[in-house]
Design a binder for these strands. Structure first.
Lengths: 350, 350
DNA sequence: TTGTATGCGTTATCAG
DNA sequence: CTGATAACGCATACAA
């Protein structure tokens, strides 16, 4: 690696063979005699020969690495996604380069350029809350770079996508609140333009409508930075608290917004779920500590990561060009810890 | 990148120049005439030329990427460390390849081999709880690969290291418990062999001794897997609870162990801090939610990451060989949220 | 079955 | 100031 890495040339010289013979022996080519093969393999083993992946990359025009762009790895959802991606990538001998956008379009673009210039063989991405311009994705795709979107997808780009049934997830969660007697249910959502925001709010609205609740725009608060800044959630929550009549429950449409809302409510001495119902997305396994009676919508993050990765490799290693791109939809899990307003249960619902 | 990346050759052909001239013009060499330079630069800009980093790597024998190995990125401490590392690395045009050991020596070794074979230019690592054998580090170092250890360091290997004053951090924390009236203070620690375990327990013991408390080995529980498995923490805590007299406080020596202990105590309906004192390491910003009155030891993770990264680049880009390796020691912060047993305060202590 | 020559994209050396 | 050539480590078409 560093000082004097042993190369095919060294083996060739020591064994009195040509580099091509050694190369072929190493690759177990059919055109090399068993004895030569054995000799080469043994010697390579002995001097601990390691092929230089950079030279390989230059030759084969692939880097054996894929890029992953998320807003932040500290978020449980994304770190689980990454674990899923890695589990597939590593087993194929690929490495995963992780980049964080911090919900900034500028950083996202910078990362994409960086990854592209690093010649990654593929890209898995969940876009930032700020992303409105998809030209760069389009140009990357047109240049032949395989891309898979997950979670926050871009409808405008035709490629594989992995999401959960966001509408149903929130629909169920909202219904859960309604069944538990809440009547004035608000929502705190991500940036308006995100795919997940639209889908998740659709679930919220559809549950309200089915139960003949009015869908009031004032009850929906958007956090354009995805709760990256706590003050933003602060404002959203306090806007809701100012309403009269005050909402008695909140549906929160992302991990960050759920913990953010909890923090703000706590700071205002509002107990969840007694004084304010709350159901939202969350993938941390510490939920019982955050609030022991919090019902959450959980995404199968690890599985999503694996799937995204598998689809990406399908694109990378696919012999013939893809005719039809897939959008894989998994299901969320509603983990019911409360059954608010009085009675308490502990159920898990699939 | 993918289909037909534009190369120096293309520019040369289009402009009727040689590749070497173009190369030099691009690198702003003094031996190229201003006109030629301008022509080349403009054309390169126009057709969006991007140098191929792989070819560069092959030529310059460096990959412009560094490897980072931690037990898991989902841990706030490590994700903040990574952010710190990235902030330095990216600004130098390097990318960061993250690998997770999951507290398994086998995975750690696998990752190291992978990274080494990927020709990373340097390595930043916090070893797993299982790591006892340092031969591989030694061999990597001898091959000339720059390594920086942080947090869980390896004393046996001479290189730069970044840690906090673990002894003092825990010493202060233990004293905090003592000042608040706790008299039978237990400790839950990581694997016995880790550097941080030794240092942190030293702080615990020294505080006890100074206050004339007996240091009882039964009061110290080790989690050999660093709390990676909850059942392990479960056992540690229940061992403590079985003691008679029962300890009235716990010092926990890592993030994972702190949240783990909290979970277990909660599950046993033991209130913190009223029925059991608890002070431990934690770097999550959700501590107020996990337990609003929890006093924690916080490490300057981001700063540690930056420092580790800076030291690494010092090794990577250092002209002359390093004569003396440094161990940088930062200070922890004791964030006091309780002042248990009755009176409540809110103080932050530097 | 093995060896020779060439090229991947770039830079460095040496001539001109 | 500019150009031809070799080299980085490897794989492969072509020759033998």
């Amino acid at each position: 690696m560093k000082f004097e890495a042993v190369t095919i040339k060294d083996i060739a010289k020591s064994l009195g063979l040509s580099t091509s013979t050694v190369s072929r022996a190493l690759r177990d080519s059919y055109e090399i005699s068993p004895e030569t093969k054995k000799k080469v393999l043994e010697y390579a083993e002995k001097i601990n020969y390691q092929p230089n992946p950079i030279a390989l990359s230059l030759k084969q025009r692939r880097s054996f690495s894929i890029g992953v762009v998320v807003c932040e790895i500290a978020n449980s959802f994304f770190s689980q996604i990454i674990n899923g991606i890695e589990s597939i990538a590593n087993q194929r001998g690929y490495n995963v380069i992780i980049a964080q956008s911090g919900e900034s379009f500028e950083r996202e673009l910078g990362n994409l350029q960086f990854l592209a210039s690093r010649s990654v063989d593929g890209l898995i991405i969940s876009v930032s809350t700020e992303t409105r311009d998809f030209e760069f994705f389009r140009s990357l795709k047109e240049k032949g770079l395989p891309i898979v979107f997950f979670d926050r997808i871009v409808d405008e780009i035709e490629t594989h996508k992995v999401i959960v049934d966001n509408k149903k997830g929130v629909y169920d969660a909202t219904n859960h609140l309604i069944r538990n007697g809440y009547t004035r249910i608000a929502a705190i959502a991500n940036a308006k333009e995100l795919s997940i925001t639209k889908d998740r709010l659709a679930g919220y609205q559809s549950a309200l409508e089915e139960n003949h609740f009015a869908v009031n725009e004032c009850l929906i608060q958007y956090c354009q930075h995805g709760g990256m800044i706590l003050s933003e959630v602060q404002e959203a929550v306090s806007n809701l608290l100012k309403l009269s009549p005050r909402p008695d429950a909140i549906v929160s449409t992302s991990d960050k917004l759920t913990t953010g809302s909890l923090r703000i409510l706590k700071a205002n001495n509002i107990e969840v779920p007694d004084q304010m119902g709350l159901v939202g997305f969350s993938n941390t396994d510490l939920t019982e500590l955050l609030n022991p009676s919090l019902t959450v919508i959980k995404q199968p993050a690890f599985e999503m990561g694996r799937l995204a990765s598998e689809l990406l490799f399908q694109l990378i290693e696919g012999k013939q060009p893809v005719v039809e791109f897939e959008t894989r939809v998994l299901t969320t899990e509603l983990i019911i810890r409360d059954s608010t307003k009085g009675k308490k249960e502990m159920t898990v619902d699939g």
